[in-house]
Amino acid sequence: MAILVNENTRVLVQGITGREGSRHTQYMLQYGTKILAGVTPGKGGQTVQGVPVFDTVEDALRKFPDINTSIIFVPAQFAADSVYEAIDAGIKLIVIITEHIPIHDALRFVNYAKRKGVTIIGPNCPGVVSPLRSKVGILPNHIYTKSGPVGIVSRSGTLTYEISYHLTQAGIGQSTVVGIGGDPIIGTDMLEVVKMFEEDPETKYIVVIGEIGGTMEERLAQYIGSGKVTKPVVAYISGRTAPPGKRMGHAGAIVSMGMGSYESKVKAFQEVNVPVARTPTEVVKLIKQYIR
């Protein structure tokens, strides 16, 4: 099972001829992801890592109607256009890796995707991996070597790799790992991913990696409090020592207008009996307690 991506995932890479696009096409292929085609306007007819390149998404879909997922590496200034192209061509899952997309652009295409019934992951995210089945993203291959009962949803990249690594070292595999992105406006938030994990029979435990800024964690906690999540959830929140009003790397990691503080998130989770780890490595200890 797993969520979002699995052995039936057939991928289109938009921006495949760029440096990041071609490099990660190679890594995804090495991981076993089924990539059918790539798109870069003006570069149709070439191949990248043996993958055929088309000028438009429509051309690619005509040749490969099985494509059901797109991953976008297109540079920020042109990324929004690529997202609309994928939505209008009928692709139902779009993973946007590109960083620095203007927020107002993201807001518009995220809302457009919702109206069209399309799921967007990102922007500015590491993507999605269901270990040993498929990876649509830039998460390091060598860390995702064991499938298993833990679903991870995270606002961070490196921190996710770190926690996944420690879980695998401890012999605990993952069902799916979803990096939802660090921007203020993202296509799919924590709560939406947790709902998917709740429905997924393979996922038995859920790890939530949050950070300061926004109220996504609080809304998730509220939902858990309503009793609709039956699976054990463990959380980690970074940014306890971040000063208010300052952006901490991620555009979304900022405490502003009195919202999004570390304390508020931890309190929200504790009130609904979700343990919050003090350090990333403590997440593994907390999960082990449930598994035992």
Binding site: S154, R155, S156, G157, T158, L159, T160, E162, G182, I209, E211, I212, Y236, S238, G239, T241, A242, M248, G249, H250, A253, T279, P280
Partner: peptide, 8 residues
């Protein structure tokens, strides 16, 4: 490396 890990 990474915003989350740096905050952590």
């Amino acid at each position: 490396n990474g915003a989350g890990l740096t905050m952590a």
